[in-house]
Amino acid sequence: MGFSGLVYGYSLDGKGGGRVLSGDDLDKGLPENQLTWLHFDYTDADTRHWITEKSQLSDVVIDALLTEESRPRTTQVNEGLLIALRGVNLSPDSNPEDMVGIRIWIDEKRIISTRRRRMLSAKDIVDAIEAGTGPTSTGDFLAMLSSTLMVRMQDTINDTEDYVDSIEEELLSSSSYDLRNKISAVRRVVISLRRYLAPQRDALLQMNNTKVTWLTEGDRQNLREVTDTLIRYIEDLDSARDRAAVAQEELSNRLAEQMNNRMYLLSIVAAVFLPLGFLTGLLGINVGGMPGAENPWAFWIVSGFMTITVAIQLWLFKRKNWF
């Protein structure tokens, strides 16, 4: 019978390799006394049926494996761990900050993981198993999965920092409004990434502090290394966020200064032409008795007077350091 929901299935030999399991193997039952990893697409009906009816898991674990939304966390249930982790979305035409989730139930002999969207970190483990360098125990699997998630994040974190660097360099030579959109975009990316990485740090710390017997000291040391890497990534994101905020503030100040300079120039021009407008308005009234109306030199006299007026105004503005 076909089983469309099984993405990967392996019976691990404890030496880094493993045997592929199919849907037919699941119908026969899981291998006895051998570490098994089953990776499902939880949106598939076969997956939901198998996990609900045949996995022999508790209702709490079943609900967690099949839930739509999950924040990173680690919960100990007897001698097993219920874990939810996130990784960057590296699928084509996708946003890396739209992080993909993996839900895991893991105990001494079983690893059951579920996902909705493709996760490359799971494929990395499959490649390692096929090469004979895969996990040798449940604790080793947990450390390897956490490590591959961090490795996959590195390029995204570095790209984000490089993008902030380019914005800062562009800000030195330009103050265009286009920079506002770029800064807003990178801040949204940082906020989205940090939204899940902060609780993932807590999940890894909790994972390391659990009392399960199958997690060896070597596994815990590897998890601590992964946690330290994640903490550094979060610090890098905090730095990028702060730098983007400073860049946005600097850009806002420059744009405001540009606007103020333009308004100041317009104010100077308006002040220069204010008395000229008064004079032309006064001399343009259509009533009798206007002096100089019959004098052929009146226009040049008025023009010369207005020129002198403008010169006096400019001298006064300059003396008062208005420009």
Rank of each mutant, 00 (worst) to 15 (best):
G2Q: 14
S4L: 12
V7L: 13
D13M: 02
G14I: 02
L21W: 13
S22Y: 14
L26H: 14
D27L: 15
G29V: 10
L30R: 14
P31D: 15
Q34G: 15
D46K: 11
E53C: 03
Q56S: 14
L57N: 06
V61P: 06
A64R: 00
L65M: 07
L65R: 01
L65Y: 05
L66G: 01
R71P: 01
R71K: 01
Q76F: 00
V77Y: 05
V77T: 14
L81A: 12
L81F: 07
L82Y: 01
L85D: 02
L85Q: 03
V100P: 03
I102N: 08
I102Q: 06
E108D: 11
I111W: 12
S113P: 15
R116V: 11
R118E: 13
D124K: 09
D127M: 12
A128Y: 04
A128L: 14
I129F: 11
D140P: 03
F141L: 13
F141I: 09
L145I: 15
S147N: 13
L149K: 07
M153N: 12
Q154G: 14
Q154L: 11
I157S: 09
D159K: 15
D162H: 14
I167M: 06
I167H: 07
I167G: 06
E168W: 04
S175V: 03
V186E: 09
V189S: 10
V189K: 14
V190P: 02
Y196S: 04
L204I: 08
L205Y: 04
L205K: 05
N208A: 11
V212T: 14
T213W: 02
L215W: 05
G218T: 11
D219G: 11
R224S: 07
R224C: 02
I231S: 14
I231D: 08
I234P: 03
E235M: 03
L237W: 01
L237C: 01
L237F: 02
A240K: 00
D242P: 02
A244H: 00
A244N: 00
A244W: 01
L251P: 08
N261A: 11
L265K: 03
A271F: 00
V272C: 02
F273P: 00
G277P: 03
L279C: 01
L282T: 02
G284Y: 10
N286K: 07
V287F: 08
M290Q: 06
G292Q: 03
P296E: 02
P296D: 06
W297S: 13
A298R: 04
I301A: 14
T309A: 07
V310F: 00
A311Q: 07
Q313T: 04
Q313C: 03
W315E: 07
L316K: 06
R319H: 15
